[in-house]
Structures are given as structure tokens and as C-alpha cells.
Amino acid sequence: MSRFWTLMSGLYQLAGPITMLLYPLYASVVAIESASKEDDQQWLSYWILYSFLTLMEMLLQPLLEWIPIWYEMKLIAVAWLVLPQFRGAAFIYNKFVREKLIKKYYPGIGGGNVSGAYYNKSSSPNGKMKSKLVDLISPKKSS
């Protein structure tokens, strides 16, 4: 019976890294090589959300240590983001993140419809879709 619990303990310890890192890494490579843009959106959204979750976890570590089932809750949430049956990462990105960004920086684009459509450069008022965030993080050319 002790071998069974040893096996279960090992599987439990591997569940997080496999669910949160290995499978998403594999699926991201497959998405890059495919012609579809839909899977690209899913996996880019996943990595955005996973990075945010990891950052929040680092900042809130002292509080999260007091929640006994935090790891299990995180594992279930990440599984929902990752599993192709749910496409949770794309859902969260389209419903919350993208909606806030488009409404804040490009209120006239698409009539407020941000349901996952890709916007082209000609849809911005001045013909160039330039994000303030991209301007902020991109290096400036020195004259």
C-alpha cells in the first residue's frame, strides 16, 4: 500500500508542472506551426494570464500560505484555462482583458464589439493602430 501512496504523491507533484508548463509549451509550439489564428490566441492568452497569476502569487505569497487548498484551486483554474474543451484562456482574455484594453485605448473600433475579431490597421482613425502600451515598452530610436 505504501508504493501506491508513493506513486500518488509523485503524480500529485507532477500534475502542476505538466498542466501549467509542459502541455502549454507543447501546445504553443503546435499553435505556432499551424495556420489557424484561433489556437495562437488561446495560447498567447494563456501565457498572459499565467504570467499575471504567477506575479500575483509572488506578491500575495504570505496570504496564500494561509489557504490550505490554494495549490489545488490553482491547479483546477489552470486546467480550465488549458484544456481545449473549455478554451478558458481565450474566454477570459476576450471577455475581460481585451474588452478593457479596446474600450480604454480604442473606443471607436468595431463599435465596441470585441468578441475575438482581429482588428486591422485600417480600422483605426488615423490609419495606424498604435498601442500606447507598445509605445511605452518599445525602445525609442535615438536621433
Results as ranks from 00 to 15, higher is better:
M1N: 09
M1V: 09
R3P: 03
F4S: 08
F4N: 06
W5A: 04
T6E: 12
L7R: 06
M8E: 11
G10K: 08
Y12D: 10
Y12F: 07
Y12S: 12
Q13I: 11
Q13W: 11
L14E: 09
A15Q: 03
A15N: 05
A15H: 03
G16P: 00
P17H: 02
M20V: 00
M20I: 04
L21E: 05
Y23M: 07
P24L: 01
P24I: 01
Y26W: 14
I32W: 08
I32Q: 06
I32E: 03
E33I: 06
S34T: 07
A35N: 11
S36L: 08
K37M: 13
K37V: 14
E38Y: 07
E38A: 14
E38P: 01
D40W: 09
D40M: 14
Q41G: 05
Q41H: 14
Q42P: 00
Q42T: 03
S45R: 00
Y46Q: 00
W47G: 06
L49I: 15
L49G: 02
Y50I: 03
L55F: 14
L55P: 01
M56S: 14
E57N: 11
M58R: 14
L59I: 15
L59G: 12
L60K: 09
Q61F: 08
L64E: 04
L64D: 00
E65Y: 13
W66C: 12
I69S: 13
W70L: 02
Y71K: 12
Y71H: 11
Y71L: 07
L75E: 01
A79I: 00
V82G: 00
V82E: 02
L83V: 09
P84H: 10
Q85G: 02
Q85E: 13
F86D: 02
F86N: 08
F86S: 13
F86Q: 07
G88I: 05
G88S: 02
G88R: 00
A89K: 00
N94H: 04
N94R: 09
N94P: 03
K95W: 07
F96A: 12
V97Y: 04
V97L: 07
R98D: 04
E99R: 12
K100A: 13
K100W: 10
K100C: 07
L101Y: 14
I102G: 04
K104A: 15
Y106M: 08
P107M: 03
P107R: 04
I109E: 08
I109Q: 09
I109Y: 07
G110L: 06
N113R: 15
G116N: 01
A117E: 14
A117H: 12
Y118A: 13
Y119K: 13
N120D: 15
K121D: 08
S122I: 12
S124N: 10
P125L: 08
N126S: 15
N126A: 13
G127A: 09
G127C: 09
K128S: 14
K128T: 10
M129L: 15
S131T: 05
K132A: 06
K132W: 07
L133V: 08
V134S: 08
D135Y: 03
D135C: 05
L136A: 12
I137Q: 01
I137W: 06
P139E: 05
P139C: 01
K141T: 09
K141L: 11
S143N: 11
